[in-house]
Structure formats: C-alpha cells, structure tokens
Design a protein around this nucleic acid. Structure first.
Lengths: 340, 340
DNA sequence: CTGTTAGCGCTTTCAT
DNA sequence: ATGAAAGCGCTAACAG
C-alpha cells in the first residue's frame, strides 16, 4: 500500500513549482517544451495520478453521477445501469450506484449520500417519494433526470416510454396478418398509471375500422396465473379470438402454455404477442413476438441528457422513447413469409 | 440549483467558530449543551449536508469502493453488484461501478479512474490483466479483493467458488436416488481452468464405489447445440445412462429437450442435473435441479472482506465459497417423496 | 514562461 | 468549552 504520490512530489522531482507541474498536467497556460518534458518524465517515473478528490474540491465538480434504482439485481435495471455507465464513461463521468430496495427511507438515504458525495447529477428511476425530487433540486448542486412511467414531473428532465405506441404497433401487426378478432389480456388498472397500452390497443382497432368488443378484453394482474385465467376466459367465448395481445410477457407465456395444453397450435390456431421482451421471450420453444422496452436507450439517453444538462443548464426536457416490436414465431408472420 | 451551504454558513448562523460547528457535526470534543443546540438548529434550518469531498481530502479516506466487472448488464454480475452495494451501504460505503467490457485497455482505465477517485478499496471480478492487480496494490491506497474462478492470486484477498464440491454434491444426489450409470456432459477443457467439476464427478463416483466409465463422459463447449450433441451420444450408448449431470444449465436444458423429443420422460426415464442455477432453471416446464453458484454471497463476502481489510489491514485471505444444490423436478427426487 | 499565493470545505491540533 | 490556524492536494489568479 504505497503512499500516494502528489503533485508536490512531481514538482520536486522535476525541479519546478507546483503550479508549473499543474500546468503541464492540465495542459493549460504556457510551459516551455523543456520543462514540460521534465515534468512529464517525473509523472511517469513516479506513477503520478492526479487526485480527483482535491480537484473536485477546487472545481466544484466531481465528474460523478449518481444512479438510483430500486434494485440493481433486477435484469431490467442492470441493463439500464449498463447503458448509463457506458454513456457516462464515454463522457468522462463515473457512476455511483445506489439501491432503494423500493423503500422510501432508503431512497432518502441514497439521495443524501449522493448529495454529500457532490455528484454532478442523478439518474433517478421511478422516484418513490416524488416530492424528494424537488427537494434535491433545491438543496443540491445536482441536476436530475427522472425516468418514469408516469406523465407529470414537468419541472425537471424526464424520460418516458411510449406504451401506447408499443401496444398500437403490436395490435397493428396482428391486424396486418389478417386477424380481426384480437383479444387483449390487459394491464391492471392503477389510478396512478393511465392505461396507455389499452389506449394503443383501442386505437389500432379503430384505425383499422374494427369494432371494439368489450368481451375480448380481460384484465390481468401481472401475477402468476393471471395469464392462464385470462386466456381461459377468452378461449371460452362463443366466437373466440384468433389472436391475443398481452400487456406483458409473463401473461403471454402463460396464455401460450394454456392454449397449447388444450390442443391449440401457436401461431396457427392462436397468434400471441407480448410486451416487455424479457429474456424469457427469446427462449427456444417460447419465441414470443413482443414489444421491446428500449431499456438500454432509456439509460443512454438519460445519461446523455443529464450530462449535457450538467455541462450547460437546459430547460426541462421531456423525452418520449419508442418501444419496438420484436417479431418472433408466436405471431405467425413467418408462416406468411413461407407462403411466398 | 441552490448554492451549497457550507460549515461556514452553519457557524455564522449559530454564532460560533467553524471548529465548534465541526465538533458538533462530528460529535467530537467538548461542546456545551447550549451551543450544540444552536448549531444543530442552524444545520437543520439551512439544510446543511457535510461535503464528503472535503472530508475525504482531509481524512484521506473516501468511504467509496470500486466495483470492476466485465458487464453489469449480465444478470450474474448484476446480482453480484446488488450484494456488494448492499453490504457496502450497510457499512457506510458507496459503490463506484465500472465495466471493463472484457477489454484489457478498458480495465486499465477503470483502475485509473478508481485510483484517481481515491476509492478505499476495489472488488475486482476476474481480472483480465492479472499483473494489473499487483500494480494497483503498489501504486494506490486501495485494498483489493479479487473474485475469481482460478486459484493463485495468493498475494491478495481472494474469493473463489468450490466447483468441485458443487459437482460432487450433484452427482452424489443422483447416486442417492439410486442411479449407478450417471453420464457427464463436461465442461470444456481449458488449460487456465482446472476441471474442478470433473474432479467432483469422479470423486462422487469413487466414494460411492462406482466405477468411472469413460464412455459416459462427453465434453461440452458451453455453446448452443453442445448439450444436444452430447446427450445424443450418451443416449446412443449400448447401456445408456439413467441420469446425466451437466456442467452448466444451458447444456442440461438442451439435453432435456432432446431427450423428451425422442420420447423419454424426465425424470422417470432420465434424471438431469445442471450447474449454475440460471433464471432459466426455475422456469415452469424446465424445473431443473441444479448447482447454484452463491453469487450473492460472493458479492457480500467480498465486500465484507474488503471493508474489514480497509478498516484494519489483514494478511491475504483466500475464501472458498460453497455452491449449493437446488432440488427441483428434473432429478426425480419428488417421485421418491411421493412414494412415502 | 515560471513561481508565489489564496482558497475550495473540512478536520484537528494547539492555545486560551 | 471555544476559537485560531494549519493543512489535505489541487487549481487559478497574479506577479514577476
């Protein structure tokens, strides 16, 4: 555990004043070629690395950003973190990782630590305590970018996904494959979240001139067994749907398994499309066509927005990202392609 | 973006000297009850948060640790990171996250950044450039804990998994279920990694008095299709195995799918055990009995070891962690339980 | 072109 | 019990 070498050591070794050493380190001001060489040599010989802590104190900038997520162990957040880290690194920033474990008190803690560590900005996924965001903006140097499913948050930078568009495209795809009776295993209704996916489903039908049939919609719960229950209802209908769109992958997978269990072929007898594009969707034997959340992009754009806003304050931006349809086998498109 | 309030502001507000304010903030030295109150009030009123950067400069300790992984987007590392973050937080440390993307140059970069940011320690998963570890130890204040699959690294703290034990327990379990002809779809042979799982397989057989039959071992590659190819060979044997242990989950799953495809029932006709306990293993319809890597524990123990070693230098510790067998349906134990 | 100096926010002797 | 002052490592005027 060697003692840290400081700029003082470098200066002494090179026989110059500290400020001169500083000049060559920062490439600022005039330095004669000769002294520059001497200093650089000293730096190399001593293995000098500038102390960011001291620099930060002086600069009032740390080139660190904080990332607040509920749980980095969740692959979704992991992917987000990956994107954030990479975008940050490319711009010379480091990432301080904090987990809230979905607890408001811990979130407060995270914020406190990040403020104390003087991060230049924070990427904050889904604040639990919404007021806390404003509080932070007021009391700390940090800029904040919020990633969220909800609208609102107009006072600061925001990244949101266009759920409605995702659902629209999914259903549209099924329509383009010739389906006219398309079931929907819907997202739970939550007063806090408008049912954007449902809106997308309805819009796609409407634009195609198809009538909205309430009986084709079954509310799911995102919980185990919910997809199975729902598909059971839909398949029990007098005139059953030939395709079903599901508000998440898990329900879609359950629906497929149930349908297969009762002898239906996927996608010939029932086309299925999900939402999320979890790792499960691409598994052999599942091959679920699904709407992919642009997780990586959310992270990348969040970090980019944050850092550019640190560099040069921006008026609050609201970014809306597009999900994208990933076509696999469960929707049946490949059958059509085969026909050609 | 409020201007940061400093200890100076607090002191002025409370009408005391800076040093006095510091005393109450740090709970050090004597402070009269009266002044303490005044200062505390000022702190609250102003929303003062001590500047960790300044403290770090003074203390020569940052209470930050660095985490180096190849890719946080990978769920395995994500779980590791989760454990590290949690253990660190509990001890008052923050985590600086860095990705190497498996590139030696970037790894060097990570180390440089962490050194500059004066982290007190580093958790380093699988160094690409092994010499770099020693270099860091020499040139920086940071303590290092290496998490690795290999042996060696005796100069510093190390966390390793007992692969041999994991394999031993898996095979042992199959033996206890009555199997005597147990196939092994083995790990690829790599001169850098001793085949610990293979050793475990052989040891289990030996201890049970079963003969090692070379024809029951097929080398896999961890690549797609490898498990299928291997099981094909095993099932083609004159006297085919009634159980098969696989060096990872992916190969195990392929083996199961192939076996089912040729009409075998799992586990009645063929028992299967994997290694890794990936998310796939617990999927409905897969239900793979498998050896779980103690990922979380690795992270937690790593962070604990690191921090205690920061607090009080320790001679290099080599920790060996136990994997554990997760029993699901593919091994057939539940059949026996049913018999009772 | 180079050196001297003040100061970033904080802790910690050392006086008083 | 409190305050004054030095200094952590560095940068950035300011002089020369």
């Amino acid at each position: 555990m060697a003692v840290r070498v400081t700029i003082k050591d470098v200066a002494k070794q090179a026989n110059v004043a500290i400020s001169t050493a500083s000049r060559v380190i920062n490439n600022s001001g005039y330095v004669s070629e000769d002294t520059r060489q001497r200093v650089e040599e000293a730096i190399k010989r001593l293995g000098y690395v500038p102390n960011s802590i001291a620099r930060s104190l002086k600069w009032k900038q740390t080139f660190s950003i904080g990332l607040i997520v509920s749980d980095i162990g969740n692959p979704f957040y992991a992917e987000l973190a990956q994107a954030v880290e990479r975008a940050a690194r490319e711009r010379g920033y480091s990432v301080l990782l904090t987990n809230t474990d979905s607890k408001a008190a811990q979130e407060r803690d995270c914020v406190g630590v990040l403020a104390a560590k003087q991060v230049d900005g924070i990427i904050w996924y889904s604040p639990i305590n919404e007021e806390l965001v404003d509080e932070v903006m007021e009391n700390s140097r940090a800029t904040v970018v919020v990633i969220t499913g909800k609208e609102g948050h107009l006072g600061h930078h925001t990244i949101r996904i266009d759920d409605q568009l995702g659902a629209f495209e999914a259903v549209n795809h099924l329509i383009s494959l010739g389906h006219t009776r398309i079931g929907y295993i819907a997202e739970p209704s939550d007063p806090k979240f408008p049912q954007e996916r449902m809106k997308g489903y309805r819009r796609a039908l409407a634009e195609a001139g198809l009538e909205f049939d309430e009986s084709l919609v079954v509310r799911g719960t995102y919980q185990e067994g919910s997809g199975r229950k729902a598909i059971k209802v839909l398949l029990g209908l007098e005139e059953r749907p030939t395709a079903v769109f599901c508000a998440n992958d898990l329900m879609a997978i359950e629906a497929m398994q149930y349908a297969r269990g009762v002898g239906l072929r996927i996608p010939e007898d029932l086309a299925v499309v999900g939402f999320d594009n979890t790792k499960l969707a691409c598994l052999h034997g599942i091959d679920l066509t699904t709407v992919a959340q642009p997780t990586y992009e959310m992270g990348r754009e969040g970090a980019k927005l944050l850092i550019s806003s640190i560099t040069k304050p921006l008026s609050p931006r609201q970014l809306l990202l597009r999900p994208s349809l990933v076509v696999r086998r469960s929707c049946g498109q490949y059958l059509k392609e085969g026909q050609r």
